[in-house]
Amino acid sequence: MSLVRTLGKNPRCDLYLDLAQMISGILLVGFLWTHMLFVAVILLGPATYDSFARFLDDYYLSYIGIPFIGLVALVHVITVCRRIPSRYQELWEHAKLVRHTDTWTWLFQLVTALGIVILVMIHVWSVLTGWPIEAVKSTERMTSFWWFYIALLLLGEYHAGFGLYRIFVKWGWIKRKTIGWVTKTITIIIVGLGLAALWAFLQLGGAV
């Protein structure tokens, strides 16, 4: 180890970064799943959806939740970036040379991460500029940009599902096969819920 690294490094730095990556990741997965449950409230009708959105608004839950999740996402981006090698071709060459499924799923997690960063920024911007959340506005967004939301849903769920799987694999709390099965099942349910919500919005918009 070089002198600069020895002098300048907190010996627990790597541990803290790893924990920050894990905790922010778990919080984001939790947020994503809750978010999808909230969106699925549209299945109970636009009136319920509106009053639920108003409830979150009235009790300032949106105003606490959105900046908090933004901060968590920032921590996650910063901590996962240290996993990305400076030369991308090394990753690609390794994945091609050594045939291994989990290596490819991780590589694709990196790709989905880049996609999510871009799409989420557009999504957050479009929601915040159209504040508050109402069924009419959501329907308008969904009917015009359904392809955008399908992409975001699939990318997000893929990244979150495999990310959670990997955390459990690394810490070994549950058997690898079991956790793989559990995360896949939850992911399929959440994707199904998201698609159902989208279908409900499209119906409200008269597109179906």
Partner: peptide, 23 residues
């Protein structure tokens, strides 16, 4: 042990891809 392996060179460097176990 932490002094030797409590870093990215040791235990926290693992990405969790498990190619080790699979191979």
């Amino acid at each position: 042990y932490f002094e030797v392996i409590g870093s990215d060179e040791g235990t926290f460097g693992c990405y969790g891809l498990m190619a080790c176990e699979d191979n």
